[in-house]
Design a protein around this nucleic acid. Sequence first.
DNA 1: AGCGTCATCTATATCGTTACAAATTTTTTC
DNA 2: GAAAAAATTTGTAACGATATAGATGACGCT
Lengths: 350, 350
Amino acid sequence: MSLGDLGEKGRRAKPERESGQAGGNAKPTLKTIAELTGLAVTTVSRALADAPQIALETRQRVRQVASEIGYLPDRAAQRLRTGRTNVISLVLDPHEEILSYATSMIKGLTEALRGTPYHLVITPHFSDTPQADPVRHIMRNRMADGIIFTRTEPSDERVKLLMENNFPFICHGRTELATAHPYVDYDNYGFAYLAARKLIAAGCRKLFIILPPERFTFAHHMRHGFMTAVREEGVAFEIARDVTLDSGSDDIRDYLFRRMGEPGRPDGFICGGEVSALSVMAAAYDHHLELGKDVRLVAKQTSGLFDQIRPRVETIYEDLAEAGLLMGRLLLKRIGGPQPIDEMRVLQTV
Amino acid sequence: MSLGDLGEKGRRAKPERESGQAGGNAKPTLKTIAELTGLAVTTVSRALADAPQIALETRQRVRQVASEIGYLPDRAAQRLRTGRTNVISLVLDPHEEILSYATSMIKGLTEALRGTPYHLVITPHFSDTPQADPVRHIMRNRMADGIIFTRTEPSDERVKLLMENNFPFICHGRTELATAHPYVDYDNYGFAYLAARKLIAAGCRKLFIILPPERFTFAHHMRHGFMTAVREEGVAFEIARDVTLDSGSDDIRDYLFRRMGEPGRPDGFICGGEVSALSVMAAAYDHHLELGKDVRLVAKQTSGLFDQIRPRVETIYEDLAEAGLLMGRLLLKRIGGPQPIDEMRVLQTV
DNA sequence: AGCGTCATCTATATCGTTACAAATTTTTTC
DNA sequence: GAAAAAATTTGTAACGATATAGATGACGCT
């Protein structure tokens, strides 16, 4: 089936302007349907919108014709007229680490958007530009109807901006702002707490945790969960100083290798990232330490990766696809509903 | 900085229709600039397009004013008028495996699109619908100016469709079609050949390879490279029968675990996927086979993952970010240029 | 008849941009 | 100094959809 030459100049290439049913391959518009049914363009538009003031019979007839000729509304025209873009922007830093963390989320998002008229646009935020720039840009130029972003900070500029402008958004992670806003988060307090308890229960006497960069809210949650557990049990602990979960895996490995060679070596490690958890394992391996005996590790699992890792590692699962699905649904709800719906959801540790 | 209430009804919420410079917060359009400069809208448009028939001085003045008031053209209007969407569609199946493989590619793509007016839209192709559907849909409804997809087949329907319609696209992987078309591929022949030679050189006597599903062109390339090497050296070999690189990691592991328990166990494994390579390692581990001694493995590396894996595994690197960057650049070239540029690039094994 | 009510349908204007042809001004030429 | 040529600028009409207000006809009521 050839749709005509859509390549270089598009439909403008055809000079056939006689609005008859010349060839069946001109892109159908409302006008086409109007001519076919003998109705006015407006009526067709309203009919397709299922307006009650159009006779039921007419509506059905229009629908019929529309589907017969494969009519689909022109997004650009709708967008220009209504101001609605049918776009959801996922703003993220296209670094491998973050991207891979966003992968499952994208899966959930596409699932949530499936069957809706919404498209998912990846809006990159390059780390050499201010964090709020993409958000500002999207709002200012109405590039999307809703924004999704991750790695929320306690006093997140993006959240503030979006709220000021009453622009639909949802973020992964919480802020510590006074005003409520929708978000989806994972119980990182629970993760760290549970991880620490597991290690202590397994006999560890000194726990070590690698945290996310301090600026992220979930770093605080993790630290808090960790601290609560070690205080409850009164065990020794240590928090990684020079590396974070955002550090390169090689750096994390090197850092841990060094640390494991120094006195007072921890025997229980908590790592909230998949590849960085492998770095911990690698550091232990390079010291000929046996995992599950000399040192123990609890990692956060966000994919099937750790099911293939040997020796088996204890993990706690965070379902990012579920988070993505939820975020998508909540955002659509927020966009559709005229009144601000403040939905907050924290996915629990299992 | 508040941009006004952009949430519910957008700019349409303001009834201020006096086209003066009432508030500075109305979205600037060509009309705004026209009024400010005393020129006609058309002139402003042409001036911003740097048309040679507009006096240089005028062009500069218009530019000046435009940047002062922060003018940015309305995408929807441009799109409606010109038929150009400024969108690049990346079509992919949002399964975790494929997505994670596409992750680095997305990184390269965003890099290529950086600074251009093009947006990256993730167009999901759900496996329960015909493969060519998204492509057809994108062309028919002019959802994008160019299409990118992966996992090309020898007689790929999508390629045929896109070529018939002369629609700009680029795919990752080659076809075996008569007509030339642009693509970016990785030398999977070289990968398998090199991997096999490495294993043989290390002393392996029976090689085993897990291939991608037969329907993909690169499966043939890999098989061919593998076969060439084993025939040259006359070593025994085996090709995975019940699993492919697309199988679930658990299935791959279970399959290999079984195979390793049977007589005539291979001692050299080639695996063209990251997580599935870990499955091979896991299967060996579960059999108490020592990697690098009892069995050897050569894996394809597409991220930093294997730098953290112990014991160290021999890998051959495929740079998917580079592929993404290249694909983005070639596609943009193809979209911009009026004459079809047939660019074929195969990234070599290193 | 005359008038209002209801159910349908339609004409017009507009979103912001660009293509096209025509109009205006300036410069050149004889 | 007038006509021709060149250099600028401008008006009008789309692109395809929808919001708004208005038109049409059928029907019932007094």
